[in-house]
């Protein structure tokens, strides 16, 4: 079974996010970039499926600037077999990303498509669902367990009330949540090997898609700052403050 994993280049999760002084966006100049952490979980799941003998080939795809090759190489070092970069310097919004990924799915015909549930930059949580809708296939979002059984897959999903299992016909789209697995670190020999794995570059036009951003960002601001309050010295003082000052109990 062929597995396709989509990964996104985003700001590293340890980097302090700074809003640009002109409120036009977030400052990404000279900032450390990395693979979106949820996508790393998706890659790890694909690698585990291969180790179990279920997946036969893992293709990793990314959309973005030339530098996004780094994130594809990271996925190759973790165990993916080959990479595809859809290279563009334009802004790619979720719907367009889903259309581009649909183009890749039609070329590659994977049985399983894995993505992170959301990227930690836009926090949209849309692309997997949109891709599944465009492909007309089933979707298992917020996945915390994936069991492939013949021509279907059972996905345990983390929902607000607890856990829900659904069964999807293959091909299907699955989006990874935090507890699906714990991604491994790439070993040095594997990082070296990854440099020799094939990486194909496509243009947006190659996939017959025209980028059409529908959402315009008018401004980006810092969130209102919360002021630190006071330190109380005892439980008695805390109870007194909550009763008489904050009046919340």
């Amino acid at each position: 079974m062929k597995v396709l994993v989509a990964v996104k280049r985003v700001i590293d999760y340890n980097v302090k996010v700074r809003v640009k002084p002109d409120n036009s966006g977030v400052d990404l100049a000279n900032v450390k970039m990395a693979m979106n952490p949820f996508d790393e979980i998706a890659v790890e799941e694909a690698v585990r499926l291969k180790e179990k003998g279920i997946a036969t080939e893992i293709v990793v795809v990314s959309i973005g600037p030339k530098a996004a090759q780094e994130q594809i190489r990271t996925a190759l070092a973790l165990g993916a077999d080959r990479g595809i970069l859809i290279e563009t310097d334009e802004e790619v919004q979720s719907l367009d990303a889903a259309k581009l990924l649909k183009g890749v799915v039609e070329k590659e015909a994977p049985q399983l498509i894995l993505l992170g549930k959301q990227s930690i930059d836009t926090d949209n949580n849309q692309t997997g669902q949109m891709l599944a809708g465009l492909l007309g296939c089933g979707q298992g979002t917020f996945a915390s367990r994936v069991d492939v059984e013949g021509d279907s897959v059972v996905v345990e999903r983390e929902i607000d009330g607890g856990l829900m299992d659904i069964k999807l016909k293959l091909p299907a789209v699955i989006t990874a949540d935090l507890r699906l697995n714990e991604p491994r670190y790439a070993s040095l020999p594997n990082i070296m090997k990854a440099k020799k794995k094939p990486l194909e570059t496509l243009s947006v036009g190659d996939l017959g898609v025209e980028l059409k951003p529908r959402l315009k960002t008018l401004k980006v601001e810092e969130p209102p700052k919360r002021q630190a309050g006071i330190k109380v010295s005892s439980v008695d003082e805390l109870v007194e403050k909550l009763k008489n000052e904050a009046k919340v109990i």
Binding site: L95, D123, G128, M130, D160
Partner: peptide
């Protein structure tokens, strides 16, 4: 914007060929 809405609405948006504004 809970797990049900986040699951369903982006798919509906894609079927309609429109974007979604999240959260």
């Amino acid at each position: 914007a809970n797990t049900t809405g986040k699951d369903i609405l982006p798919r509906a948006a894609a079927l309609l060929d429109v974007a979604q504004v999240s959260d």
